[in-house]
Amino acid sequence: MKLNCSLFSALLFGLFFQQTINAQGCVAIRHFSCSMGNELESNLLGKGDFQVGMNYRYFKSFRHFKGTEEEPDRVSNNTEVINYSHSWDFSLNYGLTDRLYAGITIPTVLNERSSLYEHGREERHKTFSRGLADIRLGVGYWLFDPVDHVNGNLALGLGLKLPTGNYNATDVFYNVGPEGSPQVRPVDQSIQPGDGGFGFTADFQFYQAISTNLFVYGGGFYLFNPKETNGIRTFRETLSPILENESVMSVPDQFALRIGLGYSLSQNFSASLGARFEGVPVEDVLGGSGGFRRPGNVLSIDPGISYMKNNFSINLNVPVAVRRNRPQSVTDLETQIATGEPRNGDAAFADYLINLGISYRIGGGKSISEIEPESNLQFD
């Protein structure tokens, strides 16, 4: 069966551009996308092609979990922590050859956090952070020639994360200073724009056509953060003496995986349905894992729709959480051993997040949409 090339290429570009792997809106997981900006973008760029893009993400996290068990009393008692997160990733990708591509992502964030426990446990107050986050640079390579392998391909990539974001953003905390006075302190780790460490990423992405308008896609990344802590005080030790080992912030790894199906609805519209699994591990692959972190992971169902016309595309995805887990951290286990009492901290998660992506391609060479339908587009 012959593949409709224009439909397939529209589906690829429309679906993959927007698919930055972002955290599902969990206090445990800070905003992050891979080095190529929209990490699961197809990146099928001809030599000399540019692609500029913007990806907006929003979530509200408020449901508390210990392990996989929700703590509904936090909401009913009005003691939940609420994070509102807005982020904008501005990306530029460039086709060095028809198979080798490079990119830069410049992220910005605007965060709001509302809590009781950070303000003397008597009054609910808000803290804020905003500004530039950690810039990412990366390169990727398609293992097969996109001209001869339109029906499927696999790309591998490497990236670098720079500590450009402020990891010591501060705000006013109430009822915590001398005699209950306000005090300026670093905001919570979950809303810090940066993490304070140099990191590097490894990523992959693939697609494979199944029929004329249907294909399977997938990919993922792992962020390696070798630095153990960034030296920024959390003030958690002021809440309880047993939290002394959580007095400084950790610089944690992060990971994400996605897989799903895409389908072309028309010449310009396509839809997708997939699953994503993402999170912060309990321990880092490289370097120490001390300091305060909220490890966590989220499994989500990820529906999406996209529109593409000529070189312009716009995409909307709304991942919905189906399983949330806040496992025991390294410091939790240390405290449990020291006190002989069970210890597992909690984290607040969102029910869903909103991802909206816009991209525009500036052609400098031959792109996939220009490949003739007769060029090796037969299914076996």
Rank of each mutant, 00 (worst) to 15 (best):
G165D: 08
D284E: 09
P342F: 15
R124H: 02
W142Q: 03
A321E: 00
T234G: 10
G290K: 02
F200G: 06
A28S: 04
L243P: 09
S42D: 14
F90Y: 01
S272A: 15
D73P: 13
P193E: 01
N77I: 03
N297H: 06
L353E: 01
D73K: 15
S247F: 05
T201G: 07
D148M: 04
G103Q: 06
V320P: 01
G287Q: 02
E278Y: 08
T212A: 10
I362C: 13
P319I: 14
G138H: 02
S114Q: 09
N4S: 09
C5R: 06
Q189K: 09
R74P: 09
K366N: 01
R293I: 13
Y174C: 04
S35M: 13
D203S: 12
L356R: 00
D148A: 11
V147I: 08
Q24A: 15
F144R: 08
N168P: 11
A348M: 03
N355L: 09
Q189D: 10
G67Y: 07
S270M: 14
L377S: 14
S369K: 10
I337Q: 05
L110K: 08
S87A: 12
I21M: 13
P303Y: 09
P319C: 05
N317H: 14
W142Y: 02
L158A: 15
I358M: 12
I210E: 03
W88I: 11
L116H: 06
L96F: 05
Q336G: 06
Q328T: 03
L356D: 05
V330D: 03
S42H: 10
E283I: 07
E237N: 15
H31M: 04
L257K: 06
N376R: 11
T234M: 02
G177I: 08
F200A: 06
G291A: 06
R294K: 09
I371Q: 05
W88F: 15
N93G: 14
Y263S: 12
N376M: 11
L143V: 09
E70M: 15
Y174D: 05
G194E: 11
P186T: 03
I362G: 08
A348H: 07
P182A: 13
Y360E: 13
A23M: 04
I135L: 14
V285H: 00
G288Y: 00
V150K: 10
N77H: 15
G364A: 11
L12K: 02
T229S: 07
H125K: 13
E244F: 04
T339A: 14
D380K: 12
S35H: 03
F221C: 11
V322N: 10
G53D: 15
P178T: 12
S367L: 02
G291T: 09
I368G: 04
V150R: 12
F206W: 07
Q208Y: 03
D332L: 00
G357V: 05
W88T: 12
I29P: 00
Q205G: 14
S6C: 01
N78R: 08
G152I: 03
N376C: 09
G131S: 06
L214E: 00
T238F: 10
S91N: 12
S300L: 05
A10H: 04
E370C: 10
N317F: 10
F269H: 03
T331K: 00
S306W: 01
S272G: 14
G159E: 15
K309Y: 06
P327D: 07
H149Y: 07
L286N: 01
F8D: 02
T79G: 04
L116K: 02
F50I: 08
S289L: 13
Y167G: 09
S306Q: 11
L40S: 08
A202R: 00
E244V: 05
D145M: 14
S289H: 04
